[in-house]
Design a protein around this nucleic acid. Structure first.
Lengths: 189, 189
DNA sequence: GCGTCCCTACCTAGTGGTAGGTTTCTCCTG
DNA sequence: CAGGAGAAACCTACCACTAGGTAGGGACGC
């Protein structure tokens, strides 16, 4: 049976989230996919190509999620919780993190196009969070004091830091502990 | 002239902060130190040894800083600002981060002793921030609503996330933007 | 037949690490 | 104070291994 590009990206993403982009190798990917290393090069000539494809897919996914969020009529707290949940799932498997965080954290990501994609994904996520906060402030389900964008960047950073905490300790509970203040801001109402 | 262990650790720390522990190699360290690769092995037999030594030194440094903080009679906001400033300096050089963040972010750190040291350093930093928040609440220079430890973990995560933001964008300004809410909490009083 | 997919076999560069010899500093003793 | 022993610092040369990447050929479907 033929191995599709998409399958390879799936497997690769899993490895990158666990080992970082630098710790991800064509050999390991080939083993998981059940094909030879050289065959990976057929689909993605260079490792940079793979990284770019991974990031492009990620950007599209994040943008689709953003569009879905905009038409989502749930309360603000529910929106924010879903954003957090999405990024939490990565931490569920021990030692793994969100692809965006994994790529942000890894200095081995040097390709300009990949970095640009990463920056774009990060900005979309900030807008994502800003929207949730905006809705939450209006429907009084999230306590938001100051400027929305400022708050959104703070929350985004807090979530990324929470992922790092979970990975550093190897314990998902640390993710929740680092975000407990957010939970409180949502239950105060 | 003889190269001291300390000098090697200094140079190594710089590389690790910029390239991560996985991206740090004995070859690169040797080049910077002006000696041969095998000579590095004389001081630190294995790369794990180097990582452990680096982390041990970091732990001691953080603990010393914590002791200094406890006898520091400045206002809470000044204490918190100094904590942030210490971790900001890493971002000043493009692409670099704090050693603690660099090690937390890198899945290549697998040695148990190193990970334990890292966890210890992280916990000390949390206590560090908690103390600053405590003082700041008392002298009314920082707005702290809920549980101090919860807030400290949130702030710690936010700072780590800010470092990631700065690195991902290659722009120190992103560090400040992600921490603008903290600034506001300190200037409100 | 041609393009897609995959293979074996190989290359080069760089990794952490070792073996064993040379220099250089230190320190103790005659 | 001279000098030698021994340790500490450093060297060259090498090892085994893995990395990303290439060349060229076989199998299979349209």
């Amino acid at each position: 049976m033929k191995t599709s590009r998409e399958e390879l990206l799936d497997l690769g993403e899993e490895i990158v989230c666990r080992q970082g982009f630098g710790g991800f190798s064509y050999g390991a990917l080939a083993d998981r996919a059940g094909i030879r290393k050289a065959s990976i090069h057929h689909h993605f000539p260079s490792k940079s190509d793979f990284g770019r494809a991974l990031m492009n897919r990620c950007v599209r996914r994040v943008e689709r999620a953003f569009e879905a969020l905009e038409t989502d009529r749930r309360r603000g707290s529910a929106l924010l919780r879903s954003v957090i949940q999405t990024r939490r799932t990565g931490c569920a498997h021990s030692g793994a993190v969100d692809l965006v965080t994994a790529m942000s954290a890894d200095p081995a990501v040097t390709d300009p196009a990949t970095r640009e994609g990463l920056a774009s994904a990060r900005e979309t996520l900030v807008r994502h969070i800003a929207h949730a906060l905006q809705v939450g402030r209006r429907d009084r389900t999230i306590a938001v004091a100051g400027d929305i964008e400022e708050e959104a960047r703070a929350v985004f950073a807090q979530i990324a830091g929470a992922e790092l905490a979970a990975r550093a300790s190897g314990n998902v509970a640390e993710f929740d502990r680092a975000l407990a203040t957010l939970d409180r801001r949502m239950s105060a109402y």
